[in-house]
Design a protein around this nucleic acid. Structure first.
Lengths: 197, 197
DNA sequence: ATGAAACTACACCGACCTGTGTAATGGCTG
DNA sequence: CAGCCATTACACAGGTCGGTGTAGTTTCAT
């Protein structure tokens, strides 16, 4: 039940924005009464936090399937997955950036949770890159991880306004260039998408 | 008068989000009556569009002061300016990305203007890079311009949630690496900030 | 001084917002 | 069957929203 509520909130918050969606709409779309919704979540804010936590979990481990591939391939694979994500019509940018932008500067003593969640998510992904770069053995894994994470965030941001797979491909190409410049041996471009032909 | 209204709207929309700010608040903060506000702008949506147009003009030509410097220095200078922008406490990310995220998917026959403005802005900045890369004579100015623009957008996005100058420096370092990989001769890191010492 | 234009204060509208209170209904387990 | 818990429908409170109508006041050029 909580799951159905959260899935509905996810969809509506992503599509229309957080403030644009009322609790009545969420309850109606979830097929439950408003009273039931408030029996599961004490306030709309709790629903927002739960929505962000859900995204956190889903997005954090989205690129862990290729865990057996070599680290460089995992990194480039993440950018290929990004290209597919942007092509999805349901793609609505980064929910954490959106939430921070929409909820505005935290007022007195409130809203710190959203920003903390956003920071944690960005750092989590940066570390995802860093771990793999360390396994490769590049000179500055931390700095390069930051650069790769910036490319992802840039691709996500611009992908929201201009849904163009060329943006994701450019991000992947830039990542490839940065890896090569760091001395990493990477497979030639496009080798993953059409392995041998 | 229009200018004062717009400046107020700019500040409030940026700090608190578009939907979070009511017209009463804008009028009060601008020191005018709500009626006067509606005599200058027919609806809140017009105010939002004007706000985005204003940002468009301000941000598009923000990096045109170094127009006499060599193109590569202009490009790297843009990333240094980005570092200062992020450090500004009033920095609130990309207003176009924020607006698109907050206003949600355009309903039937409405809101296309915001998205079009956002696309135009992103493209404008990409072309800004491209013109300079063409003057340098790199092999693929268009592709490299896209990559540099992605770095800027990534830095802006992550700079909103984690106000850290290290992010901007990483973006600048990545830009430098990409330029070098494209065969551009760039000054050593930090040469602009402390010219000769 | 006169008249037009701009501005102000203020009430008001209907719609929507988050959140609660309540009484009735359903299903499930003992 | 009895008791319990979740859920429902529905009304309601208190507030904010975008937007309008109106009557009176300021400003300013002629």
């Amino acid at each position: 039940m909580d799951e159905r509520i959260l899935a509905t909130a996810d969809r509506l918050f992503s599509r229309q924005g957080i403030r644009a969606v009322g609790v009545d709409t969420i309850a109606a779309e979830a097929g439950i009464s408003k009273r039931t919704l408030y029996n599961h979540y004490p306030a709309k804010e709790a629903l927002v936090v739960a929505h962000l936590r859900r995204r956190y979990g889903a997005l954090t481990h989205a690129d862990d399937r290729l865990v057996d591939a070599p680290p460089a391939a995992q990194i480039l694979g993440a950018f290929e997955r990004l290209e597919r994500a942007i092509a999805d019509p349901a793609f609505r940018g980064c929910p954490f950036v959106n939430a921070v932008a929409e909820l505005g500067v935290p007022g007195p003593g409130a809203d710190h949770q959203t920003n903390a969640l956003a920071i944690a998510f960005k750092e989590e992904r940066r570390q995802w890159f860093r771990r793999r770069l360390e396994r490769i053995g590049v000179a500055d894994p931390d700095g390069l991880a930051t650069q790769l994470a910036l490319l992802v965030d840039g691709c996500v941001a611009v992908g929201l306004v201009r849904r163009d797979p060329a943006m994701a491909r450019a991000a992947g190409a830039a990542a490839r260039t940065l890896l090569i410049a760091a001395g990493v041996a990477v497979a030639p471009a496009g080798s993953c998408r059409s392995p041998r032909r």
